[in-house]
Amino acid sequence: MGSEMTEIRKIDFSGLEMRKAGTEEWIKVRGEVMEALETKGFFEAVYDNVSRETLEELFGPVLKELFALPLDVKMIMNHSDKPYEAYVPRRPGCNFESLKVHDASSDSSISNFAALLWPPNGNTTFCEVAGKYVWEMKELETMVRRMVVEALGVEKQWESFEKSVVYGFKMAEYDAPVNPESVVTMPTHRDINIMNFIRQQEGQGLEIQTGDGKWLVASPNSFNVIVGESLQAWSNGRVNAPPHRVKMRNNNEKRHSIQFGSYFKDECIIQAPGELVDQDHPQVYKPFNYANYAKFLFSDGGWAENTDTLKAYCGLIEGEENDGMKP
């Protein structure tokens, strides 16, 4: 099915901050957020706390300098055994590369990341600009996640939920297509984390699929908020992770995007709160470990396009447990 320019729902967070939780303004936005996530799984956030200057620096000199680094330098980041954790290089059939800062909100993560790529002293500009962006986006992510918890009526779960979260900051560069046709450069998939906040600048590419199969083209210069499978499972299916992809047009320009995402910590078991499970809402997903699911997803045969991999994985877990109970 073709892509449509239908406008994605915009929700205005201008002037909102966590300390306004419970106000009339907060409750109004909370209702809009929950309606969008329950029906679509995504929306576009209007958020003016991130300055134009910060975005211009990020999408200008900062990302250009980052991706201009030699391949052998960027490959230094691949010291982790976790799939897609740090650096994803270009490869046959894949015309993009990405770099990710794990635990991005911690005091030393961004400076340690920069020290590896720009030894021995790091990169002051990168640290300042990236750090400012991460801090401002953390406020937006926390607001949206808090609103979901409140709307679900499980506020008493907030403290434990908050302690379970870690953040990632991912930067990607896509080559322009070399043929006259539009090219899907990132195949259809669902995110596996809690939520992703995707920003693309001066160019289209991100497309999100609705429940009836339509592909909506995300506008540039916006914050696209997308539910991940972890939140889908934690909410017992009350919100759903939408399929999305990147489809490049032949505009002879590179495309850059930045993603700020929230994740459950590796040791966490993802399970819907008891308040969300009853006769009318039976448990949809068997409890699972986030790190183990990620390993399954990126193993041979784990991920398959247009497949509900989370449901398949939870079914696999249940099957293994049942097998283990047999005499």
Score class of each variant (00 low, 15 high):
residue 134 V to N: 08
residue 115 A to V: 13
residue 121 N to H: 15
residue 132 K to A: 14
residue 106 S to F: 07
residue 107 D to E: 15
residue 128 E to T: 14
residue 123 N to M: 06
residue 112 N to D: 15
residue 133 Y to K: 00
residue 128 E to F: 03
residue 115 A to T: 15
residue 107 D to S: 12
residue 126 F to E: 03
residue 117 L to R: 03
residue 128 E to L: 10
residue 123 N to P: 07
residue 127 C to R: 03
residue 129 V to K: 10
residue 129 V to Y: 04
residue 125 T to I: 12
residue 130 A to E: 01
residue 121 N to Q: 13
residue 113 F to K: 08
residue 129 V to W: 02
residue 127 C to M: 01
residue 106 S to G: 14
residue 107 D to T: 13
residue 118 W to L: 01
residue 118 W to F: 10
residue 133 Y to R: 02
residue 110 I to E: 01
residue 134 V to G: 07
residue 108 S to T: 15
residue 121 N to P: 00
residue 117 L to P: 03
residue 133 Y to A: 04
residue 107 D to W: 09
residue 111 S to V: 06
residue 131 G to L: 07
residue 116 L to Q: 07
residue 116 L to A: 08
residue 106 S to Y: 08
residue 122 G to S: 04
residue 109 S to I: 06
residue 124 T to G: 02
residue 123 N to V: 08
residue 110 I to Y: 00
residue 104 A to C: 14
residue 133 Y to W: 10
residue 113 F to A: 09
residue 122 G to T: 09
residue 106 S to R: 14
residue 121 N to F: 14
residue 133 Y to M: 02
residue 118 W to Y: 10
residue 114 A to T: 14
residue 132 K to V: 10
residue 113 F to R: 08
residue 128 E to K: 13
residue 118 W to P: 00
residue 107 D to P: 08
residue 104 A to G: 01
residue 105 S to G: 01
residue 115 A to Y: 08
residue 131 G to N: 04
residue 119 P to W: 01
residue 114 A to I: 01
residue 113 F to C: 09
residue 126 F to Y: 07
residue 108 S to Q: 12
residue 118 W to G: 05
residue 115 A to P: 02
residue 103 D to G: 08
residue 119 P to K: 01
residue 121 N to D: 14
residue 117 L to N: 03
residue 105 S to N: 13
residue 118 W to C: 05
residue 127 C to A: 09
residue 127 C to W: 00
residue 108 S to Y: 08
residue 129 V to P: 04
residue 109 S to F: 07
residue 119 P to E: 03
residue 134 V to W: 05
